[in-house]
Simulated assay, not measured.
Amino acid sequence: MKRFLWAALLATAIAPITAEAGPIDQACMASNQKQKSWALCRCIQDVANQTLSRADQRRAAKFFQDPHKAQEIRQSDSRTHEKFWLRYKEFGAAASATCK
C-alpha cells in the first residue's frame, strides 16, 4: 500500500511538469540559440497556449528549425496561411510584451 501511495504521489508531482511542455517550448529549447532559457521558452509556450491552437503551435514550432518557412507562409496567397499569419502576429506581439 505504501508503494502505491508513493507512486501516486510521484505521478502527481511529475505530471504537471511533463504535461506543460508544448510544441513551442520544445522547439525553443531544441533551437541552437546561444541565449535560450528555460524560463523564456516556458513563457513563450504559455503565451502560445493562450493565443494559438495546438495545430497553430505545431506549425509555428517549425519556424525554430527553418525560419524560411515563416517567410513562405507570410508571402503565401493561401487564405488559410493568411489567417494563420494574423494569429501568429498576435502571438508574437503578446510574447514580446510578456516574455522579457
Rank of each mutant, 00 (worst) to 15 (best):
T98P: 05
E90K: 15
A27S: 02
P16H: 13
K100F: 11
I44L: 12
W85Y: 15
K69H: 03
D46Q: 12
A19C: 05
I17L: 15
R74E: 12
Q33C: 11
A60P: 02
R58I: 04
K34R: 12
A97S: 15
S31E: 01
R58A: 01
L86V: 12
K69T: 10
T51A: 09
A11Q: 00
C99W: 02
F63A: 03
A39L: 15
C43A: 07
K2N: 05
E82T: 06
Y88E: 03
W85A: 06
S78L: 05
Q35P: 01
N49F: 05
Q45S: 08
G22R: 03
A39K: 15
D56V: 02
E90Q: 13
A61T: 01
P23D: 10
A11N: 04
K36G: 08
A8R: 09
L86D: 14
W38V: 15
R79P: 05
L86K: 15
P23W: 02
T18N: 03
L40Y: 02
K100L: 13
S78N: 12
N49I: 05
S31C: 06
A13G: 14
C41G: 00
P67A: 08
D25C: 04
S53L: 07
E90D: 15
E82Q: 14
A8F: 11
A39Q: 15
A7K: 05
D77H: 09
Q75K: 09
D56I: 01
Q75D: 13
N49H: 13
A13T: 13
A48Q: 01
A11T: 13
A70L: 12
R3G: 06
C99E: 04
F4G: 05
F64A: 03
Q57V: 00
R87M: 08
A7T: 09
Y88M: 08
A13Q: 11
L10N: 05
Y88D: 00
E72V: 10
A61G: 03
A19R: 07
N49Y: 07
Q45L: 06
